[in-house]
C-alpha cells in the first residue's frame, strides 16, 4: 500500500498550469525530498494532498483512502503543514495544541501535548501567547501539532525554515526517527543540504511536472559532476596531478584555491593522489552536491547552463561564489 499515490494531477489557476499531469507515489517509512524551483508546483501539490484545494484532474489516495478534497476522516493519520504553520495569536502555544487536539477529537491526554512540546523544544515557552513567538518557535509548534496527529504520513513544507542549526539538526533526527517507525515523510524544501541528510529518495519538479524521480543511490549514479573548492599546500602540483585523472576538471579560482568538478568517486581518486604526492589538503569543501548538481541540471537552478557545460573559469567562479 502506498502512503501517497497521486496520478495525473492537474491544477490550473487562470492562465497558469500549476500541475500538469503529475504522478507521485510514496511508500510507508520512506522519506522523500520534494525539490523544485519557485513555481514548480510543490506547494500546490501539498495543498492538494491536504485537501485544501481541489485538482482539476487526477486522483489522490492517502493511506489507501481516496481523498475527496474536503478533508475529514481521510486525513486521519496525516500530519504536517504547508507554507509556514499558522496558529491563533490570542492563545498560548499549549492552548493552540489543545484546540487542535480537540479538532482531532480523540481526547489526547495533556501529557501527550506536553510530550510533543518537549520533543520540539518548546516545553518552557508553551505557556506564552503565540503573538510572542518567533518564526522558528512557530515552526517548532507546527511540528508539535503534526506529531499530535500520531501521523503515518507526514507532509512538511520547509520544516527547517527559521530554525537555528540546533533546531535544524533536531528536525532531521525527528524525521529519521519517525521514518524508522514506518512513517512516510514527504519533505519539500529549498535547503538541499538539509534534504540530503534525511531523504531516501527525491522527486524533482519543474513547471508542474516531475522531471526526475528516484532513490538517493540512483541520484548519486546519475548526477552530473559535483563541485568542490580545494585549498592545498601546493596548488600547482595539485593541478598537474588532477589533469592526469580522467573526468576531473580543475581550475585555479580567481579568489585563490582551486575549483574542481568531478563525481565523488573521481574526487576520491584525486584526494588519494594528492596524499600519495604529499600535497597537503588544507581545506576541501563540497560546494555543489550531487543532489544540487542534479537539481541545477534539471531545473537550470543557478541561472545558467549546467556545470558540465561551463568553461573552467566560469565553473570556478560559480563554485567559489559561495565559498
Amino acid at each position: 500500500m502506498y502512503a501517497v499515490r497521486a496520478t495525473g494531477l492537474v491544477k490550473r489557476f487562470s492562465d497558469t498550469t500549476a500541475l500538469d499531469g503529475l504522478d507521485i507515489g510514496l511508500a510507508p517509512g520512506e522519506v522523500r525530498g520534494l525539490l523544485g524551483p519557485n513555481g514548480a508546483g510543490k506547494t500546490t501539490l501539498l495543498r492538494i494532498l491536504f485537501g485544501l484545494i481541489r485538482p482539476d484532474g487526477g486522483t489522490v489516495e492517502l493511506l489507501g483512502r481516496r481523498l475527496d478534497h474536503l478533508g475529514g476522516d481521510v486525513l486521519d493519520g496525516v500530519g504536517g503543514f504547508v507554507e509556514e504553520p499558522s496558529f491563533y495569536p490570542y492563545l498560548t502555544g499549549r492552548a493552540n495544541l489543545k484546540l487542535l487536539a480537540k479538532l482531532d477529537g480523540d481526547g489526547r491526554p495533556a501529557r501527550e501535548i506536553d510530550d510533543a512540546l518537549g520533543r520540539v523544544g518548546l516545553a518552557e515557552r508553551a505557556g506564552d501567547r503565540l503573538s510572542g513567538y518567533s518564526t522558528g518557535m512557530r515552526q517548532r509548534l507546527g511540528l508539535a501539532a503534526a506529531l499530535l496527529r500520531r501521523p503515518r504520513l507526514l507532509l512538511l513544507d520547509e520544516p527547517t525554515s527559521g530554525l537555528d542549526p540546533g533546531g535544524t539538526r533536531a528536525v532531521a533526527g525527528l524525521v529519521r526517527e519517525l521514518a524508522a517507525d514506518g512513517v512516510a515523510v514527504l519533505l519539500s524544501s529549498h535547503q538541499i543540504g538539509e534534504l540530503e541528510k534525511v531523504c531516501d529518495s527525491y522527486t524533482v519538479m519543474r513547471v508542474g511536472r516531475v522531471v526526475w524521480n528516484g532513490t538517493a543511490a540512483e541520484l548519486e549514479a546519475q548526477a552530473p559532476d559535483s563541485a568542490y573548492a580545494l585549498w592545498t599546500s601546493d596548488d600547482a602540483h595539485a593541478l598537474e596531478l588532477a589533469s592526469r585523472i580522467p573526468r576531473v576538471r580543475i581550475q585555479r579560482a580567481a579568489r585563490g584555491g582551486l575549483a574542481v568538478a568531478a563525481r565523488s568517486g573521481d574526487m576520491d581518486v584525486l584526494v588519494a593522489a594528492l596524499g600519495d604526492a604529499r600535497v597537503l589538503i588544507r581545506r576541501l569543501e563540497l560546494m555543489i552536491s550531487p543532489l544540487e548538481s542534479m537539481f541545477f541540471a534539471l531545473t537550470g537552478g543557478h541561472d545558467g547552463p549546467p556545470l558540465d557545460a561551463l568553461e573552467p573559469q566560469e565553473m570556478a567562479d560559480t563554485i567559489l561564489a559561495g565559498a
Partner: peptide, 17 residues
C-alpha cells in the same frame, strides 16, 4: 487573517463540520 484555515482543515474534520 491568521492564516489558520490550513491549520484547522488539515485535522480530522470536514469542511462541512
Amino acid at each position: 487573517r491568521h492564516g489558520t484555515w490550513k491549520t484547522i482543515l488539515t485535522r480530522s474534520c470536514t469542511r462541512e463540520d
